[in-house]
């Protein structure tokens, strides 16, 4: 093993991978949320479709998409490896466990991540597969906005998306500030800001996301 792979596969190296890939996914969320929020302009999807088309046609965005998927995959695999390794470190469990020393969501990142993964499979099937691997959108048969409206006609889909957003919120609530700690960035000047900014981010972004299927289902978006 070279020094790079050796150290990246140590416990600290694996945390570093989680942090770096996690933060890059956070950056993606900002873009994704910003573009999708264009539907709230409520102009029949014009702004949103234009933004979506720009994203689909821009070479740099398409190139970054590969990076995004690589990061996502790494985040998932590394997370699963860590989870499986960590779950073997206490072969005999405690009979009584007091849960007051940490938050439930900080202890449940694996579970929240798994929920997100299940949601993601459905989500990618709904939009990404349709827009990239069929000519449904590119042929001009339908716009992405119409696709969105069709998808969110069904109550069960809306519920799954809202649950996905709630999982995302708790995942970020712990993950955002945790990433900075893993990177070694814990400082009296910045950490309070990182923590409150992270909490705000973890609440606002999933809320905006969740508002989309709900608003469409309720017919607020025309």
């Amino acid at each position: 093993m070279s020094w790079v792979t050796k150290n990246l596969s140590s416990s600290l190296g694996r945390k570093l991978i989680m942090a770096v890939t996690g933060l890059s996914l956070v950056a993606f969320l900002v873009v994704h949320c910003g573009i999708n929020a264009c539907i709230f302009v409520n102009d029949g999807g014009e702004t949103f479709n234009a933004a979506a088309e720009f994203m689909a046609k821009n070479f740099f965005i398409r190139a970054a998409e590969f990076g995004l998927f690589a990061g996502l995959l790494l985040h998932i695999i590394d997370g699963l490896v860590l989870w499986s390794a960590n779950s073997k470190k206490r072969p005999v469990k405690y009979a009584v466990v007091s849960k007051t020393n940490s938050t439930w969501y900080s202890r449940s990142m694996g579970l929240l991540g798994t929920l997100l993964l299940i949601f993601l499979v459905l989500h990618l099937k709904h939009f990404w597969v349709v827009s990239r691997f069929t000519d449904h959108i590119t042929s001009g048969e339908e716009t992405l906005f119409q696709e969105m409206k069709e998808t969110f006609q069904y109550l069960w889909v809306v519920i799954v998306y809202v649950v996905g957003c709630i999982s995302l919120s708790y995942h970020l609530l712990h993950g955002f500030q945790s990433a900075f700690q893993s990177l070694g960035w814990n400082h009296p000047k910045y950490t309070p800001f990182v923590k409150s900014f992270g909490a705000g981010f973890a609440i606002i972004v999933p809320l905006v996301f969740a508002a989309m299927p709900v608003a469409i289902y309720l017919g607020f978006i025309q």
């Binding site: 020393n101 202890r107 814990n186």
Partner: peptide, 30 residues
């Protein structure tokens, strides 16, 4: 195991050792 930053250790440590040390270790290590 590998740390997932739950902070349970800091809360239970009888000497109240701070999580800042773990961040410092991460910096030292990398």
């Amino acid at each position: 195991g590998a740390c997932t930053n739950t902070g349970a250790c800091e809360a239970e440590c009888p000497k109240e050792i701070s999580l800042e040390n773990i961040a410092r270790m991460n910096r030292e290590y990398f």
